Amino acid sequence: MNGTTRRQFLKPSAVTSTGLATWLALDHAPVLAQKRELTFLSWNHFVPAADDELRRQAEVFGKQANCAVRVDTMAHLQMPAKVAAEAQSQAGHDMYRSAGADPFLYEQLHVNLDDVVDKLGKQYGGWYPFAAEMNLTKSGWKGVPWFWVSFPGTYNQAHFKKAGFENPPKTWDELLRMGKVLKKQGNPVGIPISHCSDAHSTYWSVSWSFGAKVLEADGKTPAINSDKTAQVLEWYKELYLEAMEPEVLSWDDAGNNRFILSGKGSWIHNPVSPYNAALKEKMPIADDINHHNSPAGPAGAHSAPPILGIAVWKFSKNVELAKEFIQFL
């Protein structure tokens, strides 16, 4: 057997020792040994199965892109504070579910996504105008439109038929008239007048349908002090006193869901989540729940649904990977 000289042994040992020393000094494994991780912050969807599907899609993408995708979800009312904290510290997730004015509030901290929006628009037939209103800033697209939440009328058909109404309300004035009868029957209607997102969505639908507005078309001149705004407030006051109950003053965004599913409520202005919940839990009331277009007013039918997008932070180290994931979704 041939022996190994000290010189032969020391040469590879020196290389190994140098590599190990470098690894320890850097305090992390070599880049080639690390698997990329993309992190995405989203909300707790009102239909939990949607979160399961999002995580499934993230797993599929991760396998295709040879990376790990971590989807974190939290209550939607907690997200503004979390997003603000990440913006302040410039650390956190790579991307997040944006909403409302996020693309404008954090315009300088969001990655420009013009290329992604242009590609997807050409591929799938363009974008609705309101998608641009919520994501397109003066410096470009700072969010990619993801989905929007419809706010139809959700009503209990059995309660309406018992009150002598074969069809749901087509206008807000009809809702007021029907609501008075339904409340006397023991089945009030419900619109949140509280500190929650649903209260805003419904208020703007009612307000715009009556022709009221906050600003003129120039975006600068105040217009809220008007006869039409006064009509909206009087309508709300009458609906509250004669067709609703005081509980609407303390509702959160799940309050109207609980109200219609309790069997007492007759009508709410809300997405289809309570119906989906009734189906999932095999609740008999599911057979009585139906939906109709949001009511109209003298100025037509208008909606103010939540328009949600996906934004990517500039401090992310996975910008291109985040763009790929958005296109995959």
Rank of each mutant, 00 (worst) to 15 (best):
G153L: 15
L182G: 11
A163L: 12
L176A: 07
P188M: 11
K213G: 06
C196E: 01
Y203R: 02
P152Y: 05
N156H: 09
S207Q: 12
D227R: 14
V181E: 14
E245Q: 13
G179H: 07
L233A: 10
A163H: 09
E242S: 14
E238M: 10
E234T: 11
F210K: 01
S194R: 09
A243L: 12
A217R: 07
G190Y: 09
Q231F: 02
W208F: 13
H195T: 13
P188H: 13
Y236V: 00
L215Q: 02
M244H: 08
P222V: 01
A158F: 05
W208V: 02
I224T: 02
Y155V: 01
A212D: 14
L249A: 12
S197I: 06
V149M: 11
E216T: 09
E247V: 13
L182W: 06
W204K: 08
A158Y: 02
T171D: 07
I191D: 00
P188F: 13
E247A: 14
D218V: 03
M178T: 08
H159M: 06
I193C: 01
D227H: 10
H159I: 03
A158D: 09
A163R: 09
K161F: 12
L249R: 12
S150Y: 06
W148V: 10
V214Q: 12
N156R: 15
L176R: 14
K237F: 04
A199D: 06
Y236C: 03
P188V: 13
S197Q: 13
G179E: 02
S207L: 06
G219L: 05
K183R: 15
I193N: 03
E247L: 09
S197D: 12
A223R: 03
Q157A: 15
M244C: 12
Y236P: 01
V214S: 10
S150Q: 13
D173L: 06
S201I: 12
K161G: 11
S205T: 10
C196D: 07
G153H: 05
Q157C: 02
N187G: 04
E242H: 15
V214H: 10
P192K: 02
K228S: 09
A223L: 03
P168T: 01
T154V: 11
W172T: 00
S209P: 07
N156D: 15
L249W: 07
S197L: 09
W235I: 00
G211N: 05
W208C: 02
V232R: 01
Q231R: 15
W148N: 11
V189P: 07
F160P: 04
K170G: 13
L239C: 04
I224E: 04
N225V: 14
L249D: 08
H159E: 04
E247Y: 05
S194N: 15
V232F: 07
W148T: 13
L241H: 05
